[in-house]
Design a protein around this nucleic acid. Sequence first.
DNA 1: CGAAACTCCTGAGCGC
DNA 2: TGCGCTCAGGAGTTTC
Length: 277
Amino acid sequence: MPELPEVETVCAGLKPHLVNNAITSITLRRGDLRFPVNRKALAPFRGRSILDITRRGKYILMHFGEGGLLWHLGMSGSLRLEARRRPPRKHDHLTLRFPDTYLHFNDPRRFGLVLPVAGFADHPLLAKLGPEPLTRAFSKPYLERALAGRRIGIKQAIMDNKVVVGVGNIYASEALFAAGLHPLIPANALSRDQYGKLSKSIKKILGAAIRAGGTTLRDFTDANGNPGYFKQQLLVYGRVHAPCLRCGEPITKLTVAGRSTFLCRVCQPRVPRLRVS
DNA sequence: CGAAACTCCTGAGCGC
DNA sequence: TGCGCTCAGGAGTTTC
């Protein structure tokens, strides 16, 4: 399940191999992805060089001289570099050939996408995205402002790409645990300090996950096939009934808006405790 | 506008 | 060994 740290890890793995390399051939095997894509739309990219590869939220932006390819890994997608030609594997929907490498896009569930775009700046899929969590734009005052009037649970709120990009189901649970906040607290009901603590927790968790190369639960690997190691640092996600590593209370699992949600009921009280100062 | 339901899809895991 | 069921979930779209 690629979230921001996993996508960042994939980008970092792709860049040194692909930037300043030209696509020599394109093989599309299945185009019915999140949005349909066809050979005709991809054909103009043959022979063109990749100038840069960047990330926006969980999207990967492959920049060419004019226009680019916009990618998303959905929840089961992967981009994998291979030095040698090999037979396509099941769900290898697209393969880009470069002089020294092959790039395979594999996605069993086909929630992912690859989209030829004229430009990224004003593309509708990117235009309304919230700030990057690891920038200064994502701050205590920003978060307080962005969530004013929002009555949904704080977990749903931080997973909303218009509020902040890149926080998926795993890191939402982890960040709320780190901030000591119950996932169902209304998004507009946090104290000023809690908005600060939450924004800091999100930055801390995502930063640590990037440094660990992402989280491999089942099958995530980077562009070179290596797993990520952040799973060892998960404190609540997937740990239902296991003791909280801070207080010993068994971890609870809830379903919030259809998503598995893990928390410690002691460390994350639903009603913030009154503190005597 | 906000909020919630709905939708896409395949593979893993489970009970029998 | 196989069948049928449930679950996993990013995020765009639809509905109210």
